[in-house]
Amino acid sequence: MSKDKFTILTSTAVPLPVENIDTDQIIPARFLKATTREGFGENLFRDWRYTSDNQPINEFVLNNAAFGGKILVAGKNFGCGSSREHAAWSIYDYGFRVVVSSFFADIFKNNALNNAVLPVVVSDSFLAVLLEAIQKDPTTPVTVDLVNQEISFAGKRETFEINAYKKECLINGYDDIDYLLSLNKEIREFDLSH
């Protein structure tokens, strides 16, 4: 599957200052019954966004017209819980291309990277000022520069880590299967001798 290419993104950002957001909150299990990858955005954070009789919950940030953009900024330990890739699909399908947090759960991080969503890990202090700034002024532009591994807003900046291989994949829109398929012969030999 060819993926979007990612180099640099400037966008407003959506603050979600909650810690330990688990994949059941990102996309509740009852929405995992689809057999395609599309359409999950509608149910992103479903139970925080809507009441049980499907009325929008006004206090929730995704229902607040003041906030929008392609960057989600969330509290520590984002994406813990199940391995459902649907969590990454729903974030992508909703329109986010970046999630910023001070800590990500492992499987989520991998799933995000496999689906053209860039997880950006920042320090706790940077996260705190970023959240404060976008909550105060929702029009604050935030720039995520993958090439230089830097996130910046309103004159503040911080560099972030990303694995060199994943970075190359994101910049070029490659995926892991392309690479593994190129090893087919070696894998066959391994399977037989193993």
Binding site: S83, E85, A88, N115, D175, I177
Partner: peptide, 10 residues
């Protein structure tokens, strides 16, 4: 260990 669907495909 657990994996995501893209990895299931891999």
């Amino acid at each position: 260990f657990g994996i995501g669907t893209s990895e299931v495909e891999q």
